[in-house]
C-alpha cells in the first residue's frame, strides 16, 4: 500500500485533472459571462463616479453623479413611472392570462386553434407590437378610435394624454404578453393532480371554490417564477416608450431605461447613465429578493 503522502499527491493530481476537464467545458461560457455581464456590472459602479467618455476621455468627478441623481426630479419620475407601469401591466396580463387559461382548459373543441391565435402576438418583438399599436391608437385611423368614434363620436388621444399614456403603453404589453402567460398557466393547470379535483368534487366543492382553494394555491410555484420573470422584464420597459411616446407627453412616460438611453446619447453623459443603471440594477435585484422572501414565507 502506498503511503499517505503519496496518496495525497495522487489524489491532488486526480482533482486537478477533474477540475481542468470541468473548466474546459465551462470556459467559453465563463469568458463571455465575465466579459459581458460580471465586468459591466462592476464597470457601472466605476463609471458612476466619472463624467464624459464619449467624445473626450472620462474624468473622475467623485460623488457628483450620485448627488445629482438624488436631486433630479426626472429620476424620481422615471422610477415612479417604471414601477407604476409594472404594477399596471403585470397584474393585468396575469389576470387576463389566467382567465384565458381557464377558458382554454374548459373548452373541448378548437383548443389548439385558440391557443395558436392567442399565442401569436407573443411572437412579435415588443417594438413591432408597439408600432402596430399606433394603428390601433391613432386619433384619425387607429382602429380603436374608429370604434370609439362610432360609439361616442369623439376620438381619444391615448398617447397625447398625460393620464392615459402610461396605461396605454401597459396595454401594449398586455396584448403582446397575454399569450405567453396563458400557455404557461395552462400548462400549470394541466399538470395539477387530477385526483385532488375529483376528491374536491365529491366533497361538494363547486368550480369557484375549486379554483380558489385548489388551483390558485397549487399554482403558487408557477406564479412565483412568473412574477419574478415578469418583474425583471417589465422594469426594463423601453422599446414601446421609445417608439410610441418618447417619454412624453410632459415626461408622463419617462422610464428608467429611457432616461439611461437619453443620458448616453442625447445628453452625452454616460456617467450619469451608469449611475441610473446602477439604481435600476439595485431596484430589480431588491424587488426580486423581496418577492423570493415573500414567497418563501407564505409557503
Amino acid at each position: 500500500m502506498l503511503s499517505t503522502t503519496e496518496h495525497r499527491k495522487l489524489r491532488l493530481k486526480a482533482r486537478i485533472r477533474q477540475n481542468l476537464t470541468a473548466y474546459a467545458f465551462l470556459a467559453p461560457a465563463l469568458i463571455f459571462f465575465v466579459l459581458f455581464l460580471a465586468w459591466p456590472v462592476v464597470a457601472l459602479l466605476i463609471q458612476s463616479f466619472q463624467t464624459g467618455g464619449i467624445m473626450s476621455p472620462a474624468k473622475y468627478v467623485g460623488l457628483e453623479n450620485w448627488r445629482q441623481t438624488f436631486t433630479d426630479p426626472l429620476v424620481v419620475k422615471s422610477i415612479r413611472n417604471t414601477v407604476v407601469y409594472s404594477l399596471m401591466a403585470i397584474p393585468a396580463v396575469f389576470i387576463i392570462a389566467m382567465i384565458l387559461a381557464l377558458s382554454l382548459n374548459t373548452v373541448r373543441f378548437g383548443q389548439n386553434t385558440f391557443k395558436t391565435i392567442i399565442y401569436y402576438p407573443t411572437l412579435q418583438p415588443i417594438l413591432l407590437a408597439a408600432l402596430m399599436f399606433t394603428f390601433v391608437l391613432h386619433q384619425d385611423f387607429g382602429i380603436l378610435n374608429i370604434i370609439l368614434r362610432a360609439i361616442t363620436g369623439e376620438p381619444v388621444n391615448f398617447l397625447g394624454n398625460r393620464n392615459l399614456a402610461l396605461p396605454t403603453i401597459a396595454m401594449v404589453e398586455v396584448w403582446k404578453g397575454a399569450g405567453f402567460w396563458t400557455l404557461l398557466f395552462l400548462a400549470g393547470i394541466q399538470s395539477l393532480p387530477r385526483d385532488l379535483y375529483h376528491a374536491a368534487e365529491l366533497d361538494g366543492a363547486g368550480p369557484g371554490r375549486r379554483f380558489f382553494q385548489l388551483t390558485l394555491p397549487l399554482l403558487k410555484p408557477t406564479f412565483f417564477f412568473s412574477f419574478i420573470f415578469a418583474t425583471i422584464v417589465n422594469l426594463q420597459i423601453f422599446d414601446s416608450v421609445f417608439v410610441l411616446t418618447d417619454g412624453g407627453p410632459v415626461n408622463a412616460t419617462v422610464t428608467t431605461t429611457w432616461y439611461i438611453y437619453r443620458s448616453l446619447f442625447t445628453f452625452n453623459e454616460p456617467g450619469y447613465g451608469a449611475t441610473l443603471s446602477f439604481v435600476l440594477v439595485i431596484l430589480v435585484l431588491a424587488l426580486t429578493a423581496v418577492q423570493t422572501i415573500l414567497f418563501r414565507e407564505r409557503r
Partner: peptide, 20 residues
C-alpha cells in the same frame, strides 16, 4: 452567480457594454 445574473436587467448594462 448564474442565478443572480438572471435578475440583472440587461438594459442597465448598455452604458458599460457600449464602452467595452
Amino acid at each position: 452567480a448564474l442565478l443572480l445574473a438572471v435578475a440583472v436587467p440587461v438594459a442597465a448594462l448598455v452604458v458599460p457594454l457600449f464602452f467595452i
